[in-house]
Amino acid sequence: MSADPYSAQVRELFAAPAHAGDIAGGEVVSLSDQDVRLRLSGSATGGTVDAMRFRAWGCPHVIAAAEAVCSALEGRPLTDLENYAVADVMQNLAVPVEKTGRILVIEDAVRSLGQRFRDRT
């Protein structure tokens, strides 16, 4: 017997990812690894993240996690990006441990985006 591999949060975020898309003129990071293709874009004002968007090719957990991460980072200080960790998102979404590598691609993208913002300033 197989249990539902997707939590209620994953189902909700996958069905309606409000942060899917791009930010015109924003900083952009693209990564491809671990059966995931991800493009993360963000905009900031005065040291604070204004908006985050993503595009993702990957399993439902990746899409749901990308949505959760984008949502969580809006309004946070830019300095948070470079030290960002996806552990809480993985736990909240009940991502199977076998998919850790895929979700870490999102973490890498967020940290790279933070570096981009720092390099720009």
Binding site: P17, A20, R37, L38, R39, R55, A56, W57, I63
Partner: peptide, 10 residues
């Protein structure tokens, strides 16, 4: 829908 979510392939 999935194609609209995905970034362009390399």
């Amino acid at each position: 829908r999935l194609r609209s979510l995905a970034p362009e392939a390399a």
